[in-house]
Nucleic acid binder design. Structure first.
Lengths: 249, 249
DNA sequence: ACCTGAACACCGTTCAAGT
DNA sequence: ACCTGAACACCGTTCAAGT
């Protein structure tokens, strides 16, 4: 199947589901969730809407496939966890954090950080994962996330009756915190080209400090704590809090 | 059918921002997030789109107002008492303390249950709160939620450095679990009129038990635990896990 | 000040028709 | 089998015009 290497105004490679999903991820990453439209997709792929619908049932399925792909990559990059990708065991040998031989606690931290960073790279991912988690627990996404955390929970020695609770708390926290972090980055960028995350958090802290002292004593007092926190450190502190609860019970 | 004659009674009350927001909430509750359109709104309010735009800047602001209204009610009402009558819990601002007489732990459980049940009544609320929490921490929603939980965290004796972490974990878990529960209810209804939540959870459990034993050992084993769990009990177990971590540290 | 309703730009999706 | 592209129903939003 030697494809001609000549350049042409039209696309040279045949369309495929994979190419479409890749283009969707690219669009989501660069223009955001609202930027993924079939028109933008047809332009990028030099084709018509009908061609896309030949490979993909509808937009929901396309979003699902994009989510699954990015999630699988994020989980595979971490410790050797559950099903990486069906078929090929490629994974390019990455396994950056091969400290996976460590404790279950470290395993949970590693998976959490992997998801946290994946969401930082793909800000739309948090919303999408949350949606899939809630709307279709029978799909591929929910078991994959659940398993990636839950196997470490089990290794921790948590009694079986507590598995679901512990894994739920961890997963909800991880996705929530990751989504919030990603949004903070995006909001900072939106405020101006020179506004990075610390600058953005400072503006939020300032807003919180101006709240009514009568109604918002806690939030006002907690505002200053917003400023000088390392993303990862702050995120891991939340995980460790849950871990403390697990080993204390 | 009455053809072009306008059968709906002509509007007797003047339009107002409040009436529009109320109609939006009603639409969200009955037809879901996708059902809130300006056309449905104009029909329900017997007016034109221009009239709505006179009172409300755009759809985003309308959704925000709907979210704020329902959230304020949920925080003011607290959890529905077992038999008693809360009557009106005035609570201007953060107060939210219908169960304020008890321990801080009970306070957190009460606020959590209040949010959990509000999301159960308004399934769109979880997504909306998460969005607001992430996208605009300077808005009204974020401080209100944060305060409602955080003041009890402080009362717990948690050192100030841990306030943000603890409150974040609790809030993310509460919204995540509430959203998942609401989606489960909706999914059960969607599957059929006779399918309630237990039946739906059973079908999910069955799906999980058919996963590949090699790739999903944990999820398979945890599946059976899905079946016979009381909503509230299960939800509170997650909160208690975090509380255990707080008092252990 | 408040409301009307036609019009605009855009969206997801379909489908007869081509290769 | 795979792709084309016009067409359809619908959406959020605007705005000159009315009261």
């Amino acid at each position: 199947m030697a494809t001609s290497t000549r350049r042409s105004p039209r696309r040279t490679e045949a369309l495929s589901r994979e190419r479409i999903v890749d283009a969707a991820v690219e669009l989501l990453d660069t223009v955001g969730e609202g930027g993924l439209t079939f028109r933008a997709l047809t332009e990028r792929l030099a084709t018509g809407p009908g061609a896309i619908y030949w490979h993909v049932a509808n937009k929901e399925e396309l979003l699902g496939a994009a989510t699954e792909g990015v999630l699988a990559a994020a989980l595979a990059a971490g410790p050797p966890g559950p099903a990486g990708s069906p078929g090929s065991a490629a994974a390019s040998g990455g396994a950056s954090g091969s400290a996976s031989a460590g404790s279950p606690q470290d395993g949970i931290r590693a998976v959490g950080l992997g998801l946290f960073d994946a969401v930082g790279k793909h800000p739309w991912l948090a919303t999408q994962l949350t949606t899939q988690l809630a709307r279709s627990p029978w799909g591929a996404v929910t078991p994959r996330i659940f398993e990636s955390i839950g196997r470490h929970v089990r290794a921790l020695g948590v009694p079986e009756a507590g598995w679901f609770t512990a894994t739920s708390v961890l997963v909800h926290y991880i996705l929530g915190a990751a989504g919030q972090n990603a949004a903070n980055i995006a909001s900072g960028r939106a405020l101006g080209p020179g506004v990075d995350r610390p600058a953005f958090l400072d503006s939020v802290a300032r807003a919180w400090e101006e709240l009514d002292p009568e109604d918002y004593p806690f939030t006002r007092a907690a505002a200053s704590g917003l400023r000088d926190h390392d993303d990862h450190e702050q995120f891991l502190a939340g995980i460790d809090l849950v871990l403390a609860g697990l080993t204390a019970g």
